[in-house]
Design a protein around this nucleic acid. Structure first.
Lengths: 343, 343
DNA sequence: TTGAAAGCGGTACCAG
DNA sequence: CTGGTACCGCTTTCAA
């Protein structure tokens, strides 16, 4: 059932039916009732493609996933982000479309998106420290919001981010306060902006307490369990091993925990572990020692917030730059303890 | 730049240009060259919406996410699945679109998908034991593949699944061989088909060895860390505690591991833990004791395989039902050990 | 080998 | 308040 046949069935013009359906004021209440009722009965649904062709809008939000950066997708919080975002988007009638492209072509795809009017806006994931996609999208004029920030970009752009620097500063400070002096940092890929900010937080806390940092303790790689395991094994076996681990991801922390266990050490008393992007909120009232972490649900919130903002942005592109920061939560767990006395 | 202006610029008709671009044979090689070259120069890209309107194809694959079933999205392997699927889809020019709907409306959305021709095919996630969406989609005639199976459905349908029953049977058998007699099963939601199959495997292994099962050890809930933690705490404190845990998800296993640690027990020697949907392949050559698990990368593979199959199905709907089973991997780790002697 | 013209399913302007 | 009509960008007969 399409508009034409619906109109015929009603003995009205397509124009009138369309107007009735889309809530235009210049249609009589009586006709509107009739039309609505008939649409219901014939279970008429407008063809979104045709609608898009005619209006120039698509009700689609794009996310481009660069092929080589497995990074984001294998990240377990990615699902949480998507859940939050698509939730919020659907409330405004938007769907989310994923396109996977070789990352060399990424700029081309945005141009196409814009040219072919295939999406109304774009979500940018995993910004690099100086991300070239931002000036590109600004130039093209395609509405977009960055999940995260890009420190090296000077022009204005919209973003929603978790305060990664602060999270890591507080977590580090917390460990320092517990007496830890050798804290390993298992960070994400070096060129990623969030990794940069996390490292900043880590460094800031050390600087504040005038504690020297050791490059041997700071690592940057893709966040896999293998990575966490391999590094923890090697660090724990070194002559001056860390007493605490600060992990940027739950997945890497899994490997770290495993390595600690394999080394016959106890988590908490012997080695402390603090994890970002985990979901420990259930421990809030349960356990003995505080742990700092950005929970998975905060990622979900970020997704919702970002989506909401993007919709606004599309409606009114003249709005002032949207820049929203979420603070991570502090929860209580058992894998952290005072620094053990060294023999 | 659209077809019309490109044609004008070339002094040709839209028809000819379209034909040249789409590789129709009846166009001279000379004109084709000219057209191709011009398209390149003006960086012309066809408007997919218009193309879709004219052809009836959309190059989009749909995934409907029921709103209340947070289940799938918070599942950390969801990202892996999507990564695999979108990878394969993009190679055939398809994009993936997510729609989030109140789960009551789910059937309606499929009808709409079909009516509005908004997607060429659909991926069905998280089938229930007797999933009503399958007959619905069959009736509508919208091409689809199920990720998983639905035991209660008798009519034929296409699916790609990991052999969950076998995984859990082998894992359970493995524990039994190690001397474990009280094995806790932390399963997913009861009405889900994969949970049903996993339980089957667990039961089969017990039956084969004539070991009685205890309802107190078998649990079904949504897979959260909190769930794993809460249950492990309570089970470990019971008068006849399990010596091993079999977890359906990495996330729940996290909570279990934490509880074990909090109880002052060692994973491996005191309590064994086997986890499904984890990524332990890096341990293959590393450690001491074998562990059975369906790795995250196998989920990714499932995504690829499923997407590939769906594309085929769309091209040729008359193909025999696609029914592909993936076997999980066996890898080596350290969180499993012989059953401890009870005092 | 090329082109004209009729859709595909809507929206929106301009009359009436 | 309602209808006629041009148009969105592309494909696809049908003729030439």
């Amino acid at each position: 059932m399409n508009l034409k046949s619906l109109a015929e069935a009603l003995g009205l013009s397509q124009t009138t039916v369309s107007r009735a359906l889309n809530g235009y004021p210049e249609v009589s209440e009586a006709t509107r009732q009739r039309v609505m009722e008939a649409a219901q009965r014939y279970s008429y649904t407008p063809n979104s493609r045709a609608k898009g062709l005619a209006t120039g809008r698509t009700m689609m939000i794009g996310q481009v996933i660069p092929t080589t950066l497995k990074h984001e997708m294998v990240n377990p919080v990615f699902g949480d982000f998507v859940a939050g975002a698509s939730q919020a988007l659907s409330e405004h009638g938007y769907d989310m479309v994923f396109t996977r492209v070789p990352d060399i072509d990424e700029s081309r795809i945005y141009r196409e998106f814009n040219a072919r009017r295939v999406v109304d806006g774009v979500i940018l994931q995993g910004p690099a420290i100086s991300d070239t996609r931002i000036p590109l999208l600004n130039e093209i004029g395609l509405p977009f919001i960055v999940h995260g920030r890009s420190s090296g970009v000077s022009e204005p752009y919209n973003w929603v981010d978790v305060n990664n620097r602060r999270s890591f500063e507080r977590a580090t400070q917390f460990l320092i306060d517990l007496g830890h002096r050798r804290i390993a940092l298992l960070n994400g890929l070096d060129h990623m902006d969030f990794a940069f900010r996390r490292r900043q937080g880590y460094l800031d806390a050390h600087a504040d307490s005038a504690i020297p940092t050791d490059p041997a303790l700071m690592h940057s790689e893709e966040m896999t369990e293998e990575y966490g395991h391999r590094l923890a094994v090697s660090l724990l076996a070194s002559e001056d091993p860390p007493t605490a681990f600060l992990c940027a991801s739950m997945i890497a922390a899994l490997g770290v925990r495993r390595a600690i266990q394999e080394a016959g050490l106890r988590m908490g008393p012997d080695v402390s572990v603090i994890t970002h992007d985990d979901d420990l909120s259930y421990l809030k009232n349960g356990s003995d020692m505080p742990i700092f972490t950005a929970t998975r649900s905060s990622v979900r919130q970020a997704g919702e917030l970002l989506a909401e903002s993007l919709v606004q942005l599309i409606k009114d592109p003249s709005v002032v730059p949207i820049q929203k920061m979420l603070e991570a939560e502090l929860v209580v767990g058992s894998s952290t303890g005072p620094a053990p006395k060294r023999t």
